[in-house]
Design a protein around this nucleic acid. Structure first.
Length: 210
DNA sequence: CTCCCGATAT
DNA sequence: ATATCAGGAG
């Protein structure tokens, strides 16, 4: 099967599996989602949520992060790993937001990726999830793995996988396809022990010789 | 390409 | 002991 043939039935199966696919990060404002997404690098959502539960009470809005004591912020972010990088990125991002965007999270991908610590993946998460804007397709480690296994892309760089996906997935499905495929990758098509025997779309999968 | 980082699964 | 986890920067 070609990618174009796989996508329609794949979307149907994804809809059965995850009827209201949404990101599992906890947030109440676009700014909080942006910060949470930045903290999610190489870290499970569950641990990010554990940290942000107290973090977002302590620091409310970009000004609080911009003016925070860096060493203290590093300590607060420690459980998420890469804490020095993340503290620096979150702080610089907050300052840029105040300096250039009036403290508001921009709503274009071009503007978002100019922020320190924000690339296409994080930008797409914020735009797809908080603003429901189909600016692109989230390609994280899960979407990359599922796309490769199912034969939707032969590329390995997330940005190129995203291009391949954008060609075959209709734009009005982008905000569903991304989050739903993340969940499929997380709970069924796992990195180590994919649950092919119970997978609802095994018959569409290149891994099974389709 | 390497580095950043620690917790958890296998 | 090693791979992996909702990545991005230099």
């Amino acid at each position: 099967m070609t990618p174009a043939e796989i996508i329609p039935p794949m979307l149907a199966r994804l809809r059965e599996e995850h009827p209201d696919a949404k990101y599992e990060l906890d947030w109440t404002t676009p700014f909080e989602l942006l910060v949470a997404t930045m903290l999610a690098a190489q870290c499970t959502d569950e641990r990010v949520n554990r940290v942000t539960a107290t973090l977002f009470k302590k620091y409310q809005g970009p000004r609080a992060f911009a003016e925070a004591d860096t060493a203290e912020l590093e300590e607060d972010l420690k459980p998420t790993g890469f804490f020095k990088q993340k503290a620096k990125s979150v702080q610089l991002m907050s300052r840029e937001l105040l300096a250039r965007f009036g403290g508001e999270v921009p709503t274009t991908i071009e503007a978002l990726i100019t922020l320190p610590g924000v690339a296409r993946k994080s930008a797409n998460v914020v735009l797809n999830t908080a603003f429901n804007m189909p600016t692109g397709i989230i390609v994280d480690t899960h979407v990359a793995r599922v796309s490769q296994r199912m034969g939707l892309s032969q590329k390995d760089k997330p940005e190129e996988i995203e291009k391949d996906l954008m060609k075959v997935v209709a734009q009005d499905e982008w905000t569903f396809f991304g989050p739903a495929t993340v969940l499929h990758g997380r709970y069924t098509c796992m990195a180590k022990k994919p649950q092919c025997s119970t997978c609802g779309m095994a018959d569409l999968c290149a891994k099974n010789g389709v």
